[in-house]
Amino acid sequence: MDRDDMNGIDGTEERDRHFIELDRVEKVFDVRKKTGFLRSERREVRAVDSISFTVARGEMVGYIGPNGAGKSTTIKMLTGILTPSGGRVRVAGIDPSRERTRLAHRIGVVFGQRTTLWWDLPLIDSYRLMHRMYRIPDARYRENLDRCVELLELGDLLDVPVRQLSLGQRMRGDIAAALLHDPEVLYLDEPTIGLDVISKAKVREFLRDLNTERGTTVLLTTHDLQDIEQVCRRVMVIDHGRLMYDGPIAGLHEVGDSERTLVVDLERELPPIEAAPARVVKVEGPRQWLAFPASESAAPLVARVAAEYPLVDLSVREPDIEAVIATMYAEQADRARRAGEAEEAVS
């Protein structure tokens, strides 16, 4: 890429490639459980267990995993809210926990379930506060605000008190608030949670534009696999505080060995459809459910079913994230064992 040609001479390229860097980062919590009136038991919980990864400047990365997997803890360490118990964290060359306020100028954070907007005041007032608190030069502020207003369709909402906004409108408002100071990294914690389909689509489209036009690095945690598929090129899966997978989204399905489901509505009740490698997993009157490997295209299967059976309607269902991770968890352990055996064989 020409980016390399331009920056290869000095250390910029190296710095950009390690824009976000975690090296064997750990976070251990002491959880106290009450066992009596004043007595309690201490237990160590490894919320994040030796995680290492790097994110290059301008990447869009999805960070997924079940509840309590350590996603939020990682984000909190990356934003300087929490101090790691071990390992090394760097964001834009800054140690987040040591220089929290310096880092704050360079990152934007959106907490999906906690708004940072002022409830009783018109939306624009929250932005004016950001303008002054982050010391954003007037021209930049205006330019960034205009841009966000246009792309996030906030024009009619600026003078509306935040409490009167819908969830989707408020989320768009929150995203704009996080971007007025030109952050180089944008963290989003569940940005589409509770949003309707249209709002979700708007948010995703905006994030893609932001990344292509401004080169903003985006790291988002989500429960919604579609967020990742439509926004990120790279996905990281975390479970039990460990990084289970780091790579392109397509690979996730392969590794996870997951299956998609084709739901077929036939004209009448028929015996189970035969279309290997797909297999019928459920029949309910004229409706049948066919499972097929997620890594394969649905097109040939659909064509075959349509040609051979009296088809009324069909739809494809994506595997749900929890299932993907669950199978992957087993798979990963299995692979680690095999890798160990292979290594032994080599030596």
Binding site: G58, R106, R135, P137, G215
Partner: peptide, 22 residues
């Protein structure tokens, strides 16, 4: 000078506006 267009705040805001030492 970065090809991505994202500047560090120092570059973006100029030295005198940047909060400086902590």
């Amino acid at each position: 000078h970065s090809s991505h267009g994202s500047r560090s705040p120092q570059e973006a805001y100029g030295e005198d506006l940047w909060p400086g030492p902590y």
